[in-house]
């Protein structure tokens, strides 16, 4: 059961074998996606025809590599734009929420806190359709009453950003609140005693203290936005972000260029994930998640 207790060799080995199998299960799909990015064949499947880099740098169809595939590059651009907007918005609102819930009292606080957690239990598809319906209602209402066509409220980048922002903000609120709870308010009081205004004290002392959590939460937001599928699927217009483009190609059957994009995606998100772990590691405040 635990190493300090005597155990038969057989059961220990059996247990270790099970754990090994589990990690093979965990790694297999990811390894396979990565490896087949280099297969010299038109389809991401067996047999293995040797190594090629065409799926990254190939210039002509059908051997069009990622770096020359206009549609893929464009959708990466859209995804990046959406992710940056979502990150900036949700870190800002999350920080406001953290101060509000940790520092202020007001009627209905508990109810609002529960509502702020709600996006975690709403399935992404439902969040997507409800925002689609709501923005559409507003756009129709405005069109009927004022004759104005609010194009940004129709499926497209703006409402994709809104949809992702709607649930990602819960995460930033939780992460930044957790950090703010560990802040020693006497530091801020000292600044106030020394003649700082309230805003100066927050800006020079509290916000720098929150910075690791803000950066960490920001990276998580960026990744969640970049990789979001369910909510985005419902709200997307003609400008498809990367996940939607990849989904369409996957359904049609695609060349290993899709593996190449996936591999790049894996490497980039792995690096970002490591950075977020590194940034939030803090010796003075253990367990800063």
């Amino acid at each position: 059961m635990i190493p300090s207790l005597p155990q038969s060799k057989f059961s220990t080995r059996l247990y270790a074998a099970y754990i090994t199998l589990f990690f093979i299960y965990l790694a297999a799909p990811l390894v396979v996606v990565g490896v087949f990015a280099f297969n010299d064949s038109l389809f991401p499947s067996m047999p293995w025809n040797g190594v090629t880099f065409d799926w990254f740098i190939g210039t002509e169809a059908p051997r069009l590599g990622v770096f020359n595939d206009g549609q893929l590059l464009e959708s990466i651009g859209y995804s990046g734009f959406i992710a940056i907007c979502v990150t900036l918005l949700s870190v800002f609102v999350g920080t406001c929420n953290a101060f509000l819930f940790e520092r202020h009292t007001f009627p209905g606080k508990n109810v609002l806190y529960i509502f702020a957690l709600m996006p975690l239990v709403i399935p992404g598809v439902i969040l997507g359709i409800s925002i689609l319906i709501f923005t559409n209602s507003i756009a129709n209402g405005v069109e009927d009453s004022f004759g104005l066509d609010l194009d940004f409220l129709r499926p497209g980048l703006f409402i994709v950003i809104m949809g992702q922002f709607a649930f990602v903000t819960t995460i930033t609120t939780l992460v930044i609140s957790a950090r703010l709870r560990k802040f020693d308010t006497s530091l801020e009081e000292a600044a106030l005693n020394l003649g700082a205004t309230k805003w100066e004290a927050v800006k020079t002392i509290t916000l720098p203290f929150l910075k690791p959590a803000m950066i960490g939460a920001g990276i998580v937001c960026f990744l969640m936005s970049f990789e979001n599928f369910n909510t985005t699927l419902m709200l997307v217009g003609s400008d498809s972000p990367l996940t939607i483009t990849m989904f369409d190609r996957l359904k049609q059957g695609s060349t290993p260029a899709l593996n190449a994009v996936s591999l790049i995606l894996m490497v980039v998100s792995g690096v970002l994930a490591l950075i977020s772990v590194f940034v939030q590691r803090d010796k003075k405040v253990p367990d800063s998640e």
């Binding site: 799909p29 990811l30 996606v33 996940t243 593996n259 996936s262 970002l272």
Partner: peptide
């Protein structure tokens, strides 16, 4: 780690493993 990778990529991996011409 799998959590940091898009669900689309994970599913794609299973498709390559399990399809008729798969691994």
């Amino acid at each position: 780690i799998p959590f940091w990778v898009s669900e689309l990529v994970r599913t794609f991996g299973w498709m390559i493993l399990l399809r008729e011409s798969g691994v």
